[in-house]
Each structure stands twice: as C-alpha cells, then as structure tokens.
Simulated scan of single mutants.
Amino acid sequence: MHQLEWIGIIRHGESVGNVAAATAEEKGSDLIDIAERDADVPLSDTGEKQAQAVAGWLDDLSDEERPDVVIVSPYLRTKQTAEIALEGLDIPTVRDERLRDRELGVLDLHTVHGIRSKFPEESERRQRLGKFYYRPPGGESWADVLLRLRSLLRDVAEDHPEQRVLFIAHDAVVSLFRYVLEGLDEEELMSSAKKSPIANCSISSWRWDGEWVNERFNDVQHLQQDDAAHPTAEEGIDAPAV
C-alpha cells in the first residue's frame, strides 16, 4: 500500500464571506449578504495578508521540508490563497473538487438565527441527529464530506507515494482530515471542533512514522508574527461555512 511521507493542510485566508457572516450574526440577521455563489467568494484584504504570511512560512522551509505538490479546492478563496502563498515557488499545484467546502443546501446563506427562524423543523432535526450525521436538504453532512476525502487521500497516496503533500481547503475539511488521520470518533471530533475552531490560514500537519503523528494543529504562529496578518476571529461550531 502506498503511503505519503507528510500531510499538511491550510484553511484559506479570511474571505469577504467570513466578514459578511460575522456581521450578519452580530446583527441577528436571518441572511448573510453575499452576492456571489459560494464557489466565487474572494479573499478579503486581511485574507490576502494572511496568505502572504503563509508564503513567508513556506519560504523559510528548507528544500527537504517544502511540499512536493499542493492540492487545492477549486473555490476562488482557496485558489487565491494558493496563488499568493506559492508565488515564486516552483511547486506543482493540482485542483481537486473533492476538497470543496461542505454544501449546505437550503440552509446556504442563512445565519444560525435564520435557520432557527425559517427552518425550525430542520433546526430540531439537526439537534436530534447531531452535526456529524445531519444532512440539510440538498446539502451534505460531515459524514458525506468524509466519503470524498477518504477517496481523495487514497488517490493522492497512490499518485504521490512517499512525498510531502500540502492541501489548501476549508475549515470543515481541516477538522475531518484530523478525524481520518488520528482515528477520532464522532464525540472526539465534535469536541475538538467546538474547542478549537479552525482559524483562517492556520496550518495543520502530520508525518508518517508507522502511523500519522500530529506535528501542529490549527497553528497561527506565522500570522501572529506579522501584525498585518493577524488571525481572523475564529468561528463557532454552529457558524455557517463561508
């Protein structure tokens, strides 16, 4: 069986959707004011600076430490993060739709308040089933996302044996990578997601040593070293994905 040497994953930089979602939640609005479809939401100015901080982190790595390939979600905010972070580096980039964000179906663009107000039955069903297994109409559960991520990891290991692979994706994807690589169960995953919401442009990584060994998780040290690229306020476990 083929195996990777190292896996890293970075959440995209702050998007204009992240800003709009935070504003809508603070105001108690039902809807998030975003004109673009989810796949076309761009980075904010802060998100671009955060991606530049990732570029600095990559530039400081030795040739042996740098990734051999970077695999990116096809969404605009992840592509922009990758373009900024990898500028000037000769690292091949691949896009894979299996890294896309979790799809929310009819709940898309609704705040937590809006879901409770407009979809009370769905809110109750989600509460009963739990976030891991709840699938909104037309959308995906976390378990659904896991199916495509397991497929992706198998293919990547086959295509890049004993290589160092960096992924650039979304917050739920980062959490689910940890679930797969560290063998978490549902309770451990939800506890981790609640205690440590994934920050924009945070870095998580694992190395293979007979099993996957976590090196860092949700690390924002590279952002804290750059005052212009401060970590974005982290989202709660019930926040919409943007």
Rank of each mutant, 00 (worst) to 15 (best):
G183H: 02
F217T: 03
R207D: 12
L223M: 09
D209E: 15
I198H: 06
F177N: 00
L223Q: 10
W142D: 00
D226L: 12
S204R: 13
V174G: 07
Y133T: 00
L147V: 14
E186S: 04
Q225R: 15
V145C: 10
S141K: 05
N200C: 14
A172F: 02
S192D: 11
A193C: 13
S196P: 04
E122C: 09
S175T: 05
S191V: 01
A143S: 15
L223K: 06
E187W: 04
E211C: 08
E211I: 06
Q163G: 09
L149W: 01
A157M: 06
H222E: 11
E162P: 03
S117G: 04
E162W: 05
D159T: 14
D108M: 05
D171S: 14
E124S: 12
R207I: 12
L107H: 09
D219Q: 07
V112F: 05
D159E: 15
V145S: 05
V174W: 05
P161W: 07
G130E: 02
P136F: 07
K131R: 14
D219A: 13
Q221H: 15
R125S: 11
L223R: 04
V106N: 02
K194A: 15
F167T: 05
K194T: 14
H113W: 12
G130H: 00
D144F: 02
V180E: 00
V220Q: 03
L149Q: 08
V112C: 06
A157Y: 01
S175L: 15
G130L: 02
F132I: 07
S205R: 12
K118D: 12
M190V: 08
D185M: 03
E124V: 13
Q221K: 14
V220T: 15
Q127L: 09
R126T: 09
S205W: 11
M190D: 07
Y179W: 05
R178G: 01
R116A: 14
D171R: 06
C201T: 14
S141T: 06
S117V: 11
Q225I: 06
R150A: 04
D226R: 14
V165T: 10
E121M: 11
F217S: 08
A172I: 06
L189M: 13
A157C: 03
A199R: 07
Y134S: 09
N200V: 06
D155Q: 08
M190I: 13
L166N: 08
I115E: 12
G210I: 10
R178N: 03
H110E: 08
V213A: 06
A172Y: 00
D108A: 13
V156M: 11
V165L: 07
H160N: 08
E211M: 09
H110S: 09
V112M: 10
G138H: 02
D219K: 10
V173K: 02
F177S: 00
W206H: 13
G114L: 09
Y133G: 01
A143T: 00
R148G: 04
L189Q: 05
E124G: 08
D226Y: 06
V173M: 03
V165S: 08
E187S: 13
L129A: 12
F177A: 00
